[in-house]
């Protein structure tokens, strides 16, 4: 099932939407990836100036 939460992106200047489908994951095992990628996406505007580690 794919839920479309926002279908106004082409017209909405405020919406920074990213959607990913994960392969080889189920309803449970997808969670760590959604959490990690979700955090990176929603905080992308706050991390631009963070010093990067050499890893």
């Amino acid at each position: 099932m794919v839920s479309v939460l926002c279908d106004t992106k082409p017209f909405c200047l405020l919406c920074d939407l990213r959607t990913r489908l994960y392969t080889d994951r189920d309803h449970f095992t997808v969670m760590p990836l959604i959490i990690a990628n979700g955090l990176q996406h929603v905080y992308a505007d706050l991390i631009a100036d963070l010093p990067q580690l050499p890893w």
Partner: peptide
């Protein structure tokens, strides 16, 4: 870094 969660799981 970001490979750690799926590696753990």
């Amino acid at each position: 870094f970001t490979s750690m969660p799926p590696i753990i799981g």
